[in-house]
Amino acid sequence: MNMTSATEHAGAPVAPADAPDAIIEVEGIHKVYSGNVTALENINLDFRRGEMTSLLGPSGCGKTTLLKIVAGLLKPTDGEVRVNGAPVKGPGPERAFVFQDFALMPWATVLRNAGYGLEVRGVAKREREERARHYINEVGLAGFEEKYPHELSGGMRQRVGLARALAVDADVLLMDEPFSAVDEQTRRKFQEDLIRLREIEKKTFILVTHSIEEAVYLSDRIVLLSPRPGRVAQIVTPEIDRSGDPEAIRRTTEYLDLIDDIWAGLRTYVE
């Protein structure tokens, strides 16, 4: 089977493996859990600076595992991840993680939660709160600084998680299904906000999702993973102009065709 067939979509060239603008390089990653579950097999990928890349695939194909290895939260069985050329040995300040279940401290206010990354880095209280406030504002939560997580909706909690990740000013944001615990309307609004945030923040995003629509709508590049063992099945490069009205984008033929293409590619694994 062809392991890394890169689909060229809309004539976009596929970058060579050692592209100079690769901020994260994943090389020969294998991950075997508890002796026999092969979660990932020979993953070779580059994530380019300033791009939003989605990891897409059916449940259990190793998306979370790959993201946690990139984050330095999990050790690969074999292979190496490099950030800005340096091998990853653990979590680092260039990478920030947004968790699927938000991972907020229930005993702390929004302000304190958003500033937690700065707090552990020893940033003085004044500056920490100032920066936390800035990002709380940026993710659209102004006025909720003194609330506790249980007083917020799921969508708002995830915004706190996002503000916390943005506040540490990492180059790369790693997001594990950030919208999965959120209802459809909130999810769409959140996706639109994320596109807007990307323009302002100019960061590299790696987004795990199992929503094809979400991947197509948001990303510059979509990495399709096949399940058991998880391998890179295909890389798709959507060429969608996201500057216009969000609702109009979701109706363009490029958008809809691409969703169909990806679905056609994925359904073989699901069946």
């Binding site: 946690k68 984050a71 330095g72 939260l73 653990g90 979590p91 680092g92 300040p93 990478r95 920030a96 993680f97 968790f99 699927q100 279940d101 991972a103 401290m105 937690y116 990354g117 552990v120 880095r121 540490v168």
Partner: peptide
């Protein structure tokens, strides 16, 4: 929560 502990690790606690 394991993810809370992962969270603190990811920020370098």
């Amino acid at each position: 929560s394991p993810s809370l502990i992962d969270m603190s690790r990811s920020f370098g606690a």
